Computed example of a mutant assay.
Amino acid sequence: MWAAHILSYLVMSKVKKFLEGCIQLHYTPTTQMFCVFFCLFFCHHQANTLPNVAPSGTATQSSTIPLGDASHAIDGNKNTYYEAGFCTHTYDRLNSWWSLLLPAMYSISSISITNRNIVGERINKAEILIGNSLDNNGNNNPRCTVIDSIPNGGTSTFDCGGMIGRVVNLYHSGSDPQSVMSVCEVEVYGELYQAPSPSLSVGVNGGSIILVDKKLSWSDALFYCRDFHRDLLSIRNGEEQTKVEELLGNPTFPVTEHVWLGLRRYLMGEKWFWMSGDDPNDYSHWRHQTQSPIRQSSSPCGGIETSAPFHWTDHSCEDHANFICFDGDGTDVQKVTFFSSARSPKLPP
């Protein structure tokens, strides 16, 4: 009977749940011990069979000295001699970082880092961060661990326990004004968690606006945009309104009568705000040329009509509609934090 339970947990659970199951099923001490050892063998086997997804991503870093391109950390070559041209290297600056943007969200089991053959102490105390936020170049994401040290020319592996994200960073968060980030290979072992949906986009103001072929509630649309792009779209001027109309006027897939924007109204008042933190008073395109009236307490979320004259409209946040995300460089504007108890517990805090 206990063997069947083990197989059941093996197939249906992640490693953490498997270990919890060893205790919760009230086995005898002998069977509990066997269960734990079996799981540890499985963990090791799983960690070595998951693919290295790092080469599918795009690497960047805080600065680059000659021969030290960020992409060298995901080129598959573990040569630890910097002069050979296979390692990364930033200038010595405060809060140096290296970042990897993956093409989709992954459940990341472990990360292996290969250090240079000399001055390996430069990696000491760097943080490994995993998440979906691009704010502060990805350096605001949750922490997997802090690197104590990696031997010169050696490779160390760090268990990240299935953290969810598409942004992986190495970050010197301390006060050293001459921190350097220099590694020779970064391997990210994980499995696909969620891929982005098909979309249509146009460029605007150095970035892009993306109409997503997926129907979600307003809050889920916000999380989606923050996971895969920068944010749910804010329309800050007439040029951006025109670009949105251009996008909605030629869709390549069926869209709902309205699509979500990053518009939200305070529940206890008439004031609307952009989730990006931009000022909604700078530009508006409500049907009545003023801020949208409160139709009902259950309509505090804003969208835009998908046909002319493309007015902004308020709706129940639970409506399922297409939505528009924004990608591009961040600004000094502070985006509004949003929490939903309905969000999947698999996603990082």
Rank of each mutant, 00 (worst) to 15 (best):
S99Q: 14
H258K: 11
G120V: 07
Y106M: 09
L347Q: 07
V244G: 07
I150V: 14
Y91V: 09
K16Q: 13
S133A: 14
N141C: 08
G21M: 06
M12I: 10
N132G: 10
E245Y: 08
I113R: 01
T256Q: 07
A3F: 12
C325I: 00
P142N: 11
A308P: 13
G190L: 12
Y171F: 15
K243E: 04
Y189P: 06
S62A: 15
I130A: 01
H72E: 13
A195G: 10
E83N: 11
L134M: 11
E246C: 04
L216Y: 05
M33W: 12
G262W: 01
S297P: 00
N139P: 09
C301I: 01
P198L: 06
H315V: 05
W272H: 04
I210Y: 00
I147F: 10
S197W: 00
R93M: 14
L50W: 11
H320P: 03
T290P: 00
I65V: 15
T157L: 06
T145Q: 05
N117V: 12
V336D: 12
L67Y: 09
D319A: 13
T256S: 11
E20A: 09
G303Y: 00
P51M: 11
P142F: 11
A221G: 09
A195K: 13
S276W: 01
G190V: 12
A195M: 09
E245W: 07
K78D: 13
R226C: 04
Y91M: 11
K14Y: 05
K215V: 07
L347T: 06
F37I: 09
T145F: 11
W260K: 08
L211C: 06
V186L: 09
V212E: 00
V180L: 13
S13K: 11
F37E: 13
G162P: 06
P151G: 08
P66T: 05
G120P: 02
T337F: 06
T306W: 06
E20Q: 11
T157G: 09
Q61E: 15
F326A: 14
Q296V: 07
S133N: 13
V202E: 12
F273D: 02
C317Y: 05
T31V: 12
Q178C: 10
N117W: 03
